[in-house]
Write a protein that binds this DNA or RNA. Structure first.
Length: 516
DNA sequence: TCTGGGGTCCTTAGCCGG
DNA sequence: TCTGCCGGCTAAGGACCC
């Protein structure tokens, strides 16, 4: 383990909810809950205001609504969060080549590898400047932990929350961890925590006291050894910049349980198609097809089948998933279905066809399942289908469906300009017209099929930084709409943010690390 | 009122070939 | 030829993380 606290952990504060509050002035200081709004949704993120009511992530939405009936409930807008995350990750990338993103809102940075810091004083300075840069570039706050190892840096950022920085001096780790719950240690969840509690172990100090042998006896080799080391504050895991993807999967929970066998089969095929689309867009193929079924009673089972060679063919995946479904009893109903592909390889259908054109026909790639069963599992030869022509991969509602407006969704009205959906029902949709950094906007209600109202892209949280003195003459501001989308009286039109094209958000990267 | 979605890793068990 | 052992692979489930 290193001797200086040069591993940095960044954790954005209540990220999704904070991003929504920044984008929607009327939500600032109010409880905001982001998550699935269906009958079986759960909370993804709750703002600090909502947490005061006891709402937290992973809580069923219905329970959250009972605890905080007056909070704003919004669906997640992942592409919006991703664009903010990219800005943050660029700031981290400027500090070191070794950045390990854990999710959209969290990452480790090895400051030593980047030469950004080599002792406590420089590390702290880097951390503080990072927090200031993040605030300037995104308008959001993040908490920073600094330590000599990943685990302790993460513990530090957690304790620094919200909007803080904490540095743990090397040598003090064991004292810090001692009184903390075993749940502090990564890898100890509800089940392991309960297992340990029954053995009389609730704190990290007690983990150390129990000794490695006892922990191995209780939890098995891998977990026992690692837990004992972690409890001592020993964590040698390096910051890893790139990780190979190991699997791709999609799953859907249905609002009500599915009973009809035919419908279940159709859903599995739909999921298989979606999964293949994701697989292909990541440039992979895969060998093992996995079907996941969660039954009415929440019991979950998986069935898998390994092909002779990797595939990214939707027909092959669909058929494999359907075969797996044959072996599953669905009486009683299913609440969730999922299809995944693992055993990934780095090539796609296109590569294969290119290869097949010049190589031995019939080389090791009949994607038939492994011989064991000997049932009829032959697949039609694939030569007939053009590469890339994925048949019938539609998704979502078909054309002609009634327009759906989700709470939180960005919209634009021909007359009133940009806004967001506050709610909808009984043929009406309520929109609040306001923009990031603007004033609290007005609310108006329209018919759901009002032609003047269209879905739109998120506006950037912070005005795309114009180079201070260098207002480029060849790029004048060009509002797209000839008829000015003037907000109603009393509302600042906020020209800095309003007419920016959406590419402006991504293009703002040039100035990122130069914020004072 | 129940309990999302997308991943990773570990454990156990059975099978197979050397 | 039979038996035991071992490693590798596959399948299934569980725990955990954000």
């Amino acid at each position: 383990m290193r001797s200086a606290p040069t591993i940095l952990h960044l954790d954005m504060d209540a990220f999704f909810a904070a991003a929504e509050q920044a984008a929607k002035p009327s939500l600032r200081g109010k409880p905001v809950v982001v998550g699935g709004l269906g009958p079986r949704g759960v909370v993804a993120t709750a703002s600090y205001e909502a947490r005061r009511f006891g709402v937290h992530s992973a809580m069923p939405m219905a329970q959250a609504r009972r605890l905080a009936p007056n909070a704003a409930y919004l669906v997640p807008r992942f592409s919006f969060y991703r664009s903010i995350s990219e800005q943050v990750m660029r700031l981290l990338g400027a500090l070191s080549p070794l950045v390990e993103p854990l999710s959209l809102d969290e990452a480790f940075v090895d400051l030593e590898a980047g030469g950004a810091a080599r002792d406590a004083a420089t590390a702290r300075a880097v951390g503080e400047r990072l927090r200031a840069d993040i605030a300037a570039v995104t308008g959001l706050t993040g908490s920073v932990g600094l330590a000599a190892s990943k685990m302790i840096a993460k513990v530090a950022s957690e304790r620094a929350k919200p909007d803080g920085l904490l540095l743990i001096e090397p040598g003090t780790e064991r004292a810090l961890l001692g009184p903390l719950s075993v749940r502090t240690i990564p890898g100890v969840g509800p089940a392991t925590g309960e297992h340990l509690r029954r053995a009389g172990i609730t704190t990290c100090a007690e983990l150390v006291e129990a000794g490695e042998d006892e922990l191995v006896r209780l939890l098995g080799r891998a977990q026992g050894v690692s837990l004992h080391r972690m409890a001592l504050g020993h964590d040698d895991r390096p910051v890893v910049a790139e990780r190979d993807m190991k699997s791709v999967s999609v799953e859907d929970t249905f609002d009500t349980d599915l009973h009809d066998r035919l419908r279940i089969r159709l859903e599995v095929e739909r999921l298989a198609d979606r999964c293949v689309r994701r697989l292909r867009s990541s440039g992979h193929s895969g060998r093992t097809i996995v079907l996941k079924v969660r039954r009415y009673d929440f019991s979950t089972l998986t069935r898998s089948e390994t092909l002779r060679g990797p595939t990214d063919d939707p027909v092959v995946v669909r058929e494999a998933a359907a075969r797996l479904l044959e072996g599953v009893d669905t009486t009683g109903g299913v609440r969730l279905l999922g299809v995944g592909v693992s055993g990934l390889a780095d090539w796609t259908q296109e590569d294969l066809f290119a290869q097949a054109a010049g190589l031995i026909a019939g080389a090791a790639r009949g994607p038939a399942p492994d011989g064991a069963t000997g049932t009829d599992t032959g697949h039609p030869p694939e030569q007939g289908r053009p590469p890339g022509a994925v048949p019938d991969l539609r998704d979502g509602p078909g054309p002609g469906a009634v327009r759906q407006w989700s709470p939180g969704q960005d919209v634009r009205h021909a007359e009133h300009g940009p806004g967001w959906v506050q709610g909808s029902g009984v043929g009406r949709v309520t929109v609040r017209f306001e923009v990031p950094r603007g004033e609290i906007g007005r609310v108006r209600t329209f018919r759901v099929d009002d032609p003047e109202l269209t879905p739109s892209e998120p506006l950037p949280l912070v005005a795309a930084p114009e180079p201070p003195e260098l207002v480029s003459p060849e790029q004048p501001e060009q509002p797209e709409q000839p008829e000015q989308p003037e907000p109603p009286e009393g509302q600042p039109s906020s020209p800095a943010t309003e007419p920016k094209e959406r590419s402006g958000a991504a293009g703002s990267g040039g100035a990122d690390s130069s914020i004072p």
